[in-house]
């Protein structure tokens, strides 16, 4: 077999690696954000927010690279789908990182001296979301739609937990009306994690598109 377009193939592999790295770093940004939330660590939360600029820059780089490859290589079929999904997936990852930043902002709003007990269910939600990132990276790596499909089930679990957290927070506001500002921040965090997981599900949809060439709704 004569293999042609080796440079293009190489560039596509590099792009794939950049996306995987970005996803993994975004997983760590959520991990850190949750850790800082439970530790009331305002200082490091500020630094986490600053670090988001790096993720933004890398997402932009992936976009630029993909657009340049489209212009130079005029890709069709799976090559084209690979580049279109690279742009869309990296955009979802960037939004995920924004939610980690939002959690850090909530940590800052809560401050170091609040006496709200942060619901352990938030951590459970985040753990599922991080597992989803690992699974999505694997599905992306191997272009495996059966793995991508599992993301939808995991997302349902996150949604379920989100519902429970919100319910508990509402009850808390009734008992502690003076704490309402703080309780709201915790509810926001639950919302951010829920949205974070939705973006991973979108990545699953893009893997479907990449493999099958058809749009697919995993968020049903």
């Amino acid at each position: 077999m004569v293999s042609t377009r080796t440079q293009f193939t190489e560039e596509l592999l590099q792009l794939k690696q950049q996306i995987k790295d970005l996803a993994i770093d975004t997983k760590y940004s959520l991990d850190t954000a949750i850790h800082l939330l439970y530790e009331f660590d305002v200082e490091r939360a500020k630094r986490l927010i600053e670090d988001d600029a790096d993720i933004d820059a890398r997402e932009e780089q992936i976009n630029d690279d993909a657009v340049l490859m489209i212009a130079k290589q005029q890709p069709v079929a799976s090559d084209l789908r690979r580049l279109v999904s690279a742009i869309k997936i990296s955009s979802d990852i960037e939004r995920m990182a924004d939610h980690s930043t939002n959690i850090a902002k909530a940590t800052i709003h809560l401050g170091e001296k609040h006496n709200i007990e942060i619901d352990p269910e938030l951590r459970e939600m985040a753990v599922i979301a991080m597992d989803m990132v690992d699974l999505a990276v694997k599905a992306f790596e191997y272009e495996d739609i059966s793995l991508a499909n599992k993301l939808a089930e995991m997302d349902d679990l996150v949604d379920e937990k989100y519902g429970e957290v919100v319910k508990q927070m509402l009850e808390l506001t009734a008992i502690n009306p003076e704490q309402i500002q703080h309780i709201m921040q915790v509810a926001y965090v639950a919302r951010y994690i829920e949205r974070y997981a939705d973006h991973i599900t979108n990545i699953g949809e893009n893997i479907f598109y990449l493999v099958k060439g058809k749009a697919y709704d995993l968020n049903k």
Binding site: T4, V76, A77, S78
Partner: peptide, 11 residues
């Protein structure tokens, strides 16, 4: 084979 040809990876 179509995929390989149109993506320029024909061998």
């Amino acid at each position: 084979r179509t995929e390989d040809y149109i993506t320029g990876r024909f061998g």
